[in-house]
């Protein structure tokens, strides 16, 4: 009896297992309401929403584990996508091939995102601003730039094959989707198996200890925010592929969805704790709710309510598990 009880407890302590159970329960529920849910087409829709969210949520996971917060990811998505759209419009007007133009667009998008992240990093480490404020500054600045540069409208006339790339080709995954999945796995290894992640956890757990252990905390923080920005840049380019235009509202409120995914995934906002797999599953749950509610025909406004409940449940279960640990 003891052993069985221990195992059950152990499983329930594992946030990833809980998330998988939640995910399957949701899929079963949506399927019971409308059997069309269990089709590759719906999975394709879900994955195409998951790709940009998981990108910014992973960046956010690194930041939150380090004890910070990045409110600028959504705006970085918008700005990088817009600048890439302007660049690709220019390339296309100058007869560059679509593929070359898209490749350069991706690099530019990553670069712009990384610049937003570097600005965050420098505001935090050099100007000694708390992450909440410094990324609030860049949130406003980047989104403002989006609107100013585009005058509010979408930017078109880029490579004509952009939208084709967003079409599912490998099961529910588009080719860029497969690449992002690979990137998620690689970043997971860097978070949990490599020094980069170890320093991130150490800083979030006890920055003083990290510093006295000889870790260059400021330099590492700048790297983390730059990574978060660069991932937002990839998401910005992905939105361009999906919409075929650079939209100034892309990524709007993305930071809140990203933070929600991270929290549902089991990371602690006080730093030092988190799992990339949790974040990946958390994002998947969020986008599954969105698509599922549309498929079963529940007014989309319920989406936010369901997400709110999920966040509350995640934090509550985390609290229970930490209590369990402390009582031991």
């Amino acid at each position: 009896m003891d052993k069985a009880k221990f195992n059950a407890k152990g499983l329930l302590r594992n946030q990833q297992v809980i998330l998988l159970v939640v995910l399957f329960a949701m899929a079963a529920f949506f399927t019971s309401q409308n059997s069309i849910f269990l089709t590759n087409a719906v999975f394709g829709n879900i994955i195409s929403d998951w790709v940009p969210l998981v990108l910014i949520a992973i960046g956010e996971t690194f930041v939150i584990i380090s004890g910070g917060i990045d409110l600028s990811v959504g705006s970085a998505v918008g700005l990088s996508g817009i600048i890439a759209a302007f660049s690709m419009r220019y390339f296309t007007a100058h007869n560059m091939t679509d593929n070359l133009s898209l490749t350069l667009g991706l690099l530019i998008s990553i670069g712009i995102g990384a610049v937003v992240g570097l600005v965050n990093g420098f505001l935090i480490t050099k100007a000694n601003m708390v992450p909440f404020v410094s990324t609030l500054v860049t949130l406003g600045a980047a989104r403002g730039l989006c609107i100013v540069l585009t005058a509010g409208g979408p930017i078109a006339d880029g490579p004509s094959n952009a939208i084709d790339l967003s079409v599912p080709k490998v099961g529910p995954f588009s080719y860029p989707g497969v690449a992002v999945l690979g990137l998620v796995i690689i970043l997971g290894l860097f978070m949990h198996k490599a020094r980069f992640g170890r320093y991130t956890f150490a800083i979030g757990s006890n920055a003083f200890a990290a510093r006295s252990a000889g870790i260059n905390v400021n330099r590492h923080l700048v790297k983390i925010y730059a990574l978060s920005g660069a991932l937002a840049g990839i998401a910005g380019m992905y939105f361009y592929l999906r919409l075929g235009v650079g939209s100034p509202t892309s990524g709007q409120s993305g930071e809140l969805n990203a933070i929600a995914a991270v929290v549902i995934g089991g990371a602690s906002l006080s730093g030092g704790v988190g799992k990339l797999l949790g974040t990946a599953l958390g994002s998947l749950i969020l986008v599954t709710v969105t698509s599922g509610l549309i498929i079963i025909g529940v007014a989309a406004n319920w989406n936010q309510v369901v997400v709110a409940i999920l966040i509350a449940a995640a934090v509550f279960s985390q609290g229970i598990r930490t209590l369990g640990k402390k009582n031991k």
Binding site: A194, R198, F201, A202, S205, N206, A210, A213
Partner: peptide, 30 residues
């Protein structure tokens, strides 16, 4: 001087981590 969320050995080796041999080690794998 310890990071409470890290394991005992991670704390002991903090800032002086041993890396695996070969190319993965150059990428910082532990």
């Amino acid at each position: 001087g310890l990071a409470p969320d890290l394991s005992v050995s991670s704390n002991v080796f903090l800032g002086r981590e041993e890396l695996v041999k070969g190319p993965l080690g150059r990428l910082g794998f532990l």
